[in-house]
C-alpha cells in the first residue's frame, strides 16, 4: 500500500525519522514545518493522510485540525496527530476537534506505519 502523506512537524530530527520510515514503505512524503499556513498547504497538496504535530511555530495543531474539519473538502481527511504533551486532556481535546488517530511521542516506528496504513485504508 502506498499513497501521499503530508507531515506537518517542526522538529528536524523527527521529520527526518518519519520521512525515512514512510519513504522506505513506499509513501510519498511532503513536509511542512510551520503552523501558520498549514491549512492552505493541506488544501493545496490534498494528501491521503496528514500527520500533524501539536506544538508548531505560529499556530497550534488543534486550531489547524478544527479548521480542516470545518472545511467540507477536508472534513473526512484522515489525520494522525502526534504530540509530546502526553496528558489525557490533550487526547480529549484532539478527539473533540475530530482527530482520526492520536499518538503520544515517543512512538515506535511500526506503530506509526500501521496507523498511516490503516488511515489510508479507511
Amino acid at each position: 500500500m502506498s499513497g501521499h502523506v503530508l507531515l506537518i512537524e517542526d522538529e528536524p530530527n523527527i521529520i527526518e525519522a518519519i520521512g525515512f520510515i514512510l519513504s522506505r514503505d513506499g509513501w510519498r512524503v511532503d513536509t511542512h514545518s510551520n503552523g501558520v499556513d498549514a491549512v492552505d498547504v493541506v488544501r493545496a497538496k490534498a494528501p491521503d493522510v496528514v500527520i500533524l504535530d501539536v506544538m508548531l511555530p505560529g499556530r497550534s495543531g488543534y486550531d489547524i485540525l478544527r479548521d480542516l474539519r470545518n472545511d467540507p473538502v477536508t472534513q473526512t481527511l484522515p489525520i494522525l496527530m502526534l504530540t509530546a504533551r502526553g496528558q489525557s486532556k490533550d487526547r480529549e481535546m484532539a478527539e473533540r476537534a475530530g482527530v482520526s488517530r492520536f499518538m503520544t511521542k515517543p512512538f515506535s516506528n511500526a506503530e506509526v506505519l500501521d496507523a498511516v496504513r490503516a488511515l489510508k485504508a479507511s
Binding site: I14, A17, I21, A110
Partner: peptide, 22 residues
Amino acid sequence: FLSQISHELRTPMTSIRAFSEI
C-alpha cells in the same frame, strides 16, 4: 510546568527512539 517538561523530554526521546529503531 509538567506539560512543558513532558514536551521537552519527549521530543529528544522521540528522535532517539525513532532512529534507534531505524
